[in-house]
Design a binder for these strands. Structure first.
Lengths: 329, 329
DNA sequence: ACGGACCGTGTAACCGGTTACATGTCCTAG
DNA sequence: CTAGGACATGTAACCGGTTACACGGTCCGT
């Protein structure tokens, strides 16, 4: 049984394809008799319009590309969930594409979306401006998420990393911590950089507070390893701020295994508020990720549909204080 | 700047559109001179073929629909990650679609995929056979994931609940437990049923082992409540197998609050291996979700590309022994 | 020298929709 | 009575690719 086409429907309803198309698209100028016959034929043949054909003639796909560096973890699923809500409301579908480095060079995965999407949301915090320019397609609207994008004309939405990190810094000072450690994210990652910068900037305002930065890579293991190295080196500290929750969790575990008490001996804070954070009582910076997704997709669709959207937006974050940063000793 | 079309390329390269198409699709019968001119023109115009047009004429989209009940949590992200790997390898894109009940009735979200995908992976554990039939489209290949689908001609992939539960049963017996409790999942859930059946079946083979089943609903609270009720009733037992990790975690907490030692007094095991399980040292049955995604997509693509795939497949699971089931007392 | 196989290339039909424009009918105003 | 407008509908071009088929030129064997 081959799929019915609009011409099959027209034949059965004894009308022209134009009339069928008009009925299906809710066009007004159709007589009731025609409309009825068309509807009868459509249901009888269980006709469904062919999306590719429609896209081709209308130059509109009603899908949106989502291009992300990695498709894993709660962050990803939350982001997509938020976008899915908006997409559903506004009649769009989401096309997923991961941007892992191994993709065939010289052929941007983004351009593969031409003719498939009306626009795309791109998140590529690991790329620099140059690399970004190389992959950005000319053919459709793009909104950047959490990505350095100063030099481009597409809107950018970034996390308000600075105020999050500042809030953590102030909180740690407020509860009396003096010797702080920051476990940074991977070098070259914009978010990691902003968090580290803001954290240190605030702390330099306090003459009696020391801060030391060590390297991590956003993985749980790297957080644990960083702390282990510090302990082995005999360093003393009374609080740790990791650039994300994963590393904070790793740090937490290593600290406890080393016999240190959290928060009594060492306070720990992270960034992201992954679900596990609540379970472990981890102080962290809450990022409403689903909302970030909604936010980004809404901006993109507004642009596509003509209503302009502002070109740079900060997505708010909020400090959540839990058990791992207790009161002053 | 409008997008370049294949005719623009042909004009610039002084050849026909057919030749351009041949070069782009790696067709052999093209002279080197022609090939060079085409390539020059393509790069000069930074031409990218229009996916919708290509889909239309080839009746092939190289995308796959993924239809899921919900887009959240680690399960979803893992599943998608696995599929993404396969999709990338084999040159497909993933089109995401959630199946929340609110979708316009009488118009299946699946049929909206016509002309957009070559096939779809559908996961709808909450639908019965009838509801499922109603939404399944005729136009393209479908693979069902973890969904009752006996009556349909599309392949189904389900978890191997039975061997997982059997492994747990054998393990508990092997470490010397004699009085077991099973916290079952919600009535009517196929996975829960299979786990309970297999668990009890194995244990009935041991004359000196007792097993008692209590009801749960997959939630953490229900696991705790079930154990609390047993303790209150003065029941004695030395091991608990919950039908999923959530309930196992609830049980664990309640046992400890009651002053019982795990694993010394009572062993605890779950099912799923959620990330938290590793953290809590929970013995459980690992379901490699990413691999399930790979598995499902591979089967679908094989079908689409002609190599037939078996119609019903069990996805393997594996017992992971951790701290909550220790050695015999 | 000639017929045919083979090769590279171009022309045009086709995929399945949308829509500008033409057509025909009926109604009404001058 | 008729010109012209409003309306319902049909015809055919178009979106941007792919590809069956036609065509002309080489090279070969006889």
């Amino acid at each position: 049984m081959a799929e019915a086409t609009i011409r099959d429907v027209a034949r059965r309803a004894q009308v022209s394809v134009a009339s069928v198309s008009r009925v299906l698209n809710g066009f007004e100028r159709v007589s009731d008799a025609t409309r009825e016959r068309v509807i009868e034929a459509v249901t009888a043949l269980s006709y469904v319009p062919h999306a590719a054909a429609r896209s081709l003639s209308m130059a509109r796909t009603h899908s949106i590309g989502i291009v992300l560096p990695d498709l894993h973890g709660e962050f990803f699923s939350e982001l997509v969930r938020g976008m899915d809500r908006v997409a559903n409301d506004r009649g769009y579908l989401l096309l997923l594409s991961s941007l892992h480095p191994g993709n065939r060079i010289g052929f941007s995965p983004l351009s593969a979306l031409r003719g498939r999407v009306d626009g795309a949301i791109v998140m590529a915090p690991h790329l620099n401006e140059q690399e970004l320019s190389d992959i950005l397609p000319k053919g459709f609207e793009v909104v950047l998420l959490n990505t350095r994008g100063g030099a481009h004309d597409c809107p950018v939405i970034t996390l308000d990393n600075a105020s999050g990190a500042e809030a953590v810094a102030r909180h740690l000072v407020a509860i009396g911590r003096k010797r702080l450690v920051h476990i940074a994210g991977p070098a070259g990652n914009a978010d990691a950089q902003e968090r580290a910068d803001a954290f240190c900037r605030v702390l330099h305002g306090y003459s009696d507070v020391l801060v030391e930065t060590v390297q991590g890579d956003f993985s749980e293991d790297s957080g644990g390893a960083a702390i282990a190295a510090l302990l082995q080196a005999g360093r003393e500290f009374d609080a740790v701020f990791a650039a994300n929750d994963n590393m904070a969790i790793g740090a937490l575990q290593t600290l406890r295994e080393a016999g240190l008490k959290v928060p009594e001996d060492v306070g720990v804070a992270g960034f992201d508020d992954v679900p596990m954070a609540r379970h472990l009582g981890l102080t962290t910076v809450q990022v409403r990720i689903a909302q970030l997704g909604e936010h980004g997709l809404t901006a993109l669709l507004d642009r596509i549909e003509g209503r302009g959207a502002p070109s740079h937006m900060l997505h708010p974050v909020e400090l959540v204080v839990r058990a791992t940063t207790g009161e002053p000793r």
